[in-house]
């Protein structure tokens, strides 16, 4: 009974929220159109950023601190994922597909995906694409491979996996410190090197992002008989 009332109350609150949101949006869209200050600034500063694609410039130069922390969030998710992983055998026999056609397709498809990821990474400096898309694509390729039962020893929880998780992040971090040691601000690139450094960072990030997402996919429990190891009290 109380549960019912609670649900009704919450539902009504959501309805009210939606109405208010629509009303706020109505006010916002009625505001006069004007030149966007940030866009102007962006196009003025873009030549100094080392890349020609504005989104990449924002992500990896103007607001690179956001990106740094965002990768931190991903790393945390990956860490927690592998900290919960209890599987010793990473190849789940139930998952291995016996279909030879699928294997053949995959053998064709996986390198293609990796190539595509590389291209996205490279393209990111001048047109849509970049580290994140490339990394996600790598992860997707990995997921496909795993679903098909390809062996992936590097995903075993161990030093290699952990190093892979933080590779991009540490490259980013070290380059960020470079500027500060030089007497400039944290995350400032040395003049002239911005483009190259951004590419280095992006390459590292792609690898790590792919690995983290894949690790998260893999570390979910699969085998029903695995042990349930609880922590100590308190």
């Amino acid at each position: 009974m109380i549960e019912r009332a609670r649900q009704a109350l919450l539902g009504a609150a959501c309805l009210l929220f939606t109405v208010c949101l629509l009303w706020a949006v109505r006010h916002l869209v009625a505001l006069p159109a004007e030149q966007q200050a940030l866009s102007v600034l962006l196009s003025r500063w873009l030549p100094d950023s080392g890349v020609s694609h504005p989104v990449t410039a924002v992500l990896l130069n103007f607001r690179s601190y956001d990106t740094l922390l965002e990768i931190g969030v991903l790393v945390i998710a990956g860490m927690v994922g592998i900290s919960l992983a209890r599987t010793s055998a990473l190849e789940d026999p139930a998952m291995r597909s016996a279909d030879p056609l699928l294997h053949a397709l995959l053998r064709l498809f996986l390198p293609l995906l990796v190539l595509l990821a590389g291209w996205l990474l490279w393209a990111g400096s001048s047109r849509p694409g970049g580290a994140f898309q490339a990394g996600a694509l790598l992860a997707a390729a990995g997921v496909l491979g795993r679903l098909a039962g390809l062996p992936m020893a590097f995903l075993r929880p161990g030093t290699l996996l952990r190093a892979g998780l933080v590779l991009g992040f540490s490259v980013f971090l070290l380059i960020a410190l470079l500027g500060a040691l030089d007497g400039r601000a944290f995350l400032a690139y040395p003049p002239g090197l911005a483009g190259a450094l951004i590419l280095v960072i992006e390459a590292g990030l792609s690898l790590s992002i792919g690995m983290i997402l894949l690790a998260l996919f893999v570390s979910a429990p699969v085998a029903p008989e695995e042990d349930a190891d609880g922590g100590p009290p308190a």
């Binding site: 916002l28 869209v29 505001l31 159109a33 004007e34 030149q35 966007q36 940030l38 866009s39 962006l42 504005p54 989104v55 924002v58 992500l59 607001r63 956001d66 990106t67 965002e70 990768i71 969030v73 991903l74 945390i76 998710a77 927690v80 994922g81 994140f132 996600a136 992002i209 983290i212 997402l213 998260l216 996919f217 979910a220």
Partner: peptide, 27 residues
């Protein structure tokens, strides 16, 4: 209001990464 704004695109990309990290962790 102003036409396409690349800054917001960058923000949303960041937001998507955070969201997918949270989703994967939650799963």
């Amino acid at each position: 209001r102003h036409g396409s704004d690349p800054v917001t695109h960058a923000l949303v990309l960041t937001g998507i990464v955070v969201a997918v990290a949270a989703t994967a962790l939650a799963l």
